[in-house]
């Protein structure tokens, strides 16, 4: 079968590769306001594929509870390797991405499965 491009299957792996090439970023996540971040997460359409809570689904990976470091996060959003469309700096400045990142970080952890009767076998 025709192979025009080798894409590494694991998005996280690729993001890690890209992190190395990304411009220098603060090691720790930059300060960002989670409330503003929520608005930006919605207005920029991240919710469409990732869900309002970043819970993921068929259209996009789960972001809540498994956030990669900010540098990798930014690198991925700028140059996604698979189905996600890219967001360039011009339309989504890194400062706003930091706010989105803060919002995603602020998502409460999922309740343990054991605590949800409906999810028992």
């Amino acid at each position: 079968m025709k192979q025009t491009l080798m894409v590494i299957a694991g998005a996280a792996l690729m993001a890690a590769v890209l992190t190395a090439q990304a411009p220098a970023q603060p090691a720790a996540a930059p300060a960002g306001n989670a409330d503003t971040g929520k608005k930006l997460f919605v207005s920029n359409g991240c919710w469409q594929c990732h869900g309002y809570e970043g819970q993921g689904g068929v259209a996009g990976a789960r972001l809540a509870g498994r956030l990669m470091p900010f540098a990798g996060f930014t690198a991925y959003v700028r140059r996604p390797v698979n189905q996600m469309p890219p967001y360039v700096e011009k339309v989504l400045p890194t400062a706003d991405l930091a706010r989105i990142y803060a919002y995603l970080q602020s998502r409460p952890a999922a309740p343990p499965v054991a605590s949800i009767p409906l999810l028992q076998k």
Partner: peptide, 14 residues
């Protein structure tokens, strides 16, 4: 089941 637990209490409903 683990995935289903995310956004369990969210509104809009997951």
């Amino acid at each position: 089941r683990q995935e289903a637990a995310h956004a369990w209490n969210a509104s809009p409903i997951s």
